[in-house]
Design a protein around this nucleic acid. Structure first.
Lengths: 344, 344
DNA sequence: ATGTAATGTGGAATCGATTTCATATTATGA
DNA sequence: TCATAATATGAAATCGATTCCACATTACAT
């Protein structure tokens, strides 16, 4: 209980400075090292972290801000982050914003000058206020899954992920629909839409403006927007979705509406979530290296903390891999409806 | 930057004690209150939490220990916890153990006397070491989703959840298989198995020992164990699963093996995860009030912190609700394959 | 009016560590 | 051998808040 560094020092017959050095790998003779070790072991003493932090300004916490908790992709990223950070001696402080921008700002300012040695921001939307908050940050930050100019970030090649998928589908589809997300989300909103448009164009197909719908990041929204899309444009035979979750919802609608998938309508998502393996038929999708992204972001942040915020600045863009499954029609090539085929 | 309570006091022309009282709703005249308010607003001063914690021993953090992050049910519980705690002025420190008992102990001892004002342990398995670690805790703890004698806990009526499901299926099944989890997990392992056994017995059915299989909490494991089960006992026509995730994996196997579901084999899970709505056919399952459990656990913990650890001690057991969908055969009653029917 | 309770304030002690400084001892190298 | 570097140690200052104590003022009840 009332154990503090003074008690330990007294019991070990040394000054408290020496105990502190023992705890922080400073110069201590092996004789005193042993004496201190024994006393600490006997008493079960653990230094009080608030006192350490007050003096040293190091918290050994890393703030990780995520938009929601029950997500496959986020789970994998956090898993990657976690493995690196725990090895590096950091504790994760996970803050979940539930897709609320205000919360995101709240956490950024909460972490400001306090609480954490660094931040990994698994961002969604960047407003001017976000940038201001980031600018005012006193600790290094790595942005994960979005590109933001001037910041260290680890992100996906959303454009080519979407484009490769669209190019592939352009071969077997005639009339296209797209279920995307808000354009305020640069990665998932803008980049993926741009990739889909270019990919279809490259395959001499057009994505009509009225066939582009905006969803929230939940299945129900995919269901609803698929319904509106198909009711407005019944001739659509290919639906591309910005995420697997949206695709799963849309697929549910298609089946409820009695459409044959992929016969009458084919559908695909992006993300290679475990959902995409469960639906019937399994979803054609694009694998993104979520766990890898997490580890890279964490490593980058640790470097940033150790070497100083502006000594290192990196932008890591990660590849993707097309996963062809049963929810889309086989093309003319050989072997293309195997579970895995690398189109990149 | 270099703003601290002394600077604020000087600028406002008061003592730092008064500034502290201002920050902690002590006696301050409205005149000085206003002066301090203005200075704080102008400077953007925020008290350093490590200094506050060192002196007051309050961290305003609550440690929430969870077994894994990308889980539907856990996501909902955390969401419930989060809404209550943030309203009460607490910050969540989410620690994810990735289903590793060692990690669970590590976090418990990490939180010991340090870091947090209270703990919510979303537990899985309780060893003697766990109990020792819990006993040594200096802060109140609420155990969520498991019952543990002598501790405040919020948990599910796993027995009746499983039993109701089994009683329902006993009407339409002949040969039963059960895909459970380790018996070391009291709630999901022991209680659900016991409920299933009793429910079947009540319906004059038997669960043969060799038709009971143990899975891990992932789809792949459900797939694999379903395969082994069906290969060993091809006459099984009803598979009950301890979780929806396991059921989803098992369902995948059944379809891959060409079994008609629910015609030849019917299957059901527990948890009412979003997965259960996506599979084809949708899974009959049991709804558990995850979010409600989260809010109750958080409220209980806040009470515990405010009123003292042993002033309040509560055990909250939560109800369940059978959700009948298409993965099981309709019984003789009327209207029983609607989406929602309350059997309790 | 006068003792008691509530309100208001500043000085100083305190929380438990790290870090600077001064200083002593031992090792190293030319 | 002697200057210099590396190792080793303790006293004291410090981090930035809260809280105890002493004391002053105001309000209230009798």
């Amino acid at each position: 209980m009332g154990m503090n560094i003074n008690e330990i020092a007294k019991l070990a017959g040394v000054s408290r400075a020496t105990v502190s050095r023992y705890l922080n790998q400073g110069y201590v003779s092996s004789e005193k090292k042993e004496r201190i070790r024994q006393v600490i072991e006997k008493t079960g003493y653990r230094p009080l972290s608030s006192a350490q932090t007050l003096r040293s300004k190091k918290t050994n916490f890393i703030g990780v801000i995520i938009p929601k908790i029950n997500s496959d992709s986020i789970g994998r990223m956090v898993s990657g982050i976690s493995s690196v950070l725990s090895r590096a001696g950091y504790q994760i402080l996970l803050a979940c914003t539930e897709n609320d921008e205000g919360q995101e700002l709240k956490f950024l300012t909460l972490f400001k000058e306090n609480h954490v040695d660094g931040i990994i921001l698994l961002g969604t939307i960047f407003t001017a206020e976000h940038k201001k908050a980031l600018k005012n940050l006193a600790v290094p930050v790595v942005i994960l899954s979005q590109y933001l100019n001037g910041y260290s970030c680890v992100y996906y090649d959303d454009y080519h992920a979407a484009r490769n998928l669209a190019e592939y589908l352009a071969k077997t589809g005639k009339q296209f629909g797209y279920l995307g997300v808000t354009q305020r989300d640069q990665a998932v909103g803008q980049e993926r839409l741009r990739g889909v448009k270019d990919g279809l164009l490259f395959g001499n197909r057009l994505l009509a403006q009225e066939n582009i719908r905006e969803c929230r990041f939940v299945m129900e929204s995919g269901y609803e927007q698929a319904r509106e899309l198909m009711e407005a444009s019944p001739d659509v035979d290919t639906i591309i979705c910005a995420t697997d979750t949206i695709a799963a919802g849309a697929l549910q609608y298609l089946k409820a509406a009695g459409k044959k998938v992929p016969g009458e309508v084919q559908i695909a998502g992006i993300g290679d979530s475990s959902l995409s393996r469960v639906t019937e038929p399994a979803l054609t999708t694009v694998h993104l290296y979520f766990e890898e992204a997490g580890t890279q972001a964490a490593q980058l942040l640790v470097e940033l903390i150790q070497k100083g915020a502006d000594a290192v600045r990196k932008e890591v863009k990660l590849d993707s891999r097309l996963i062809i499954q049963k929810s889309t029609r086989p093309g003319e090539e050989k072997g293309e409806d195997t579970d895995e085929s690398n189109v990149h």
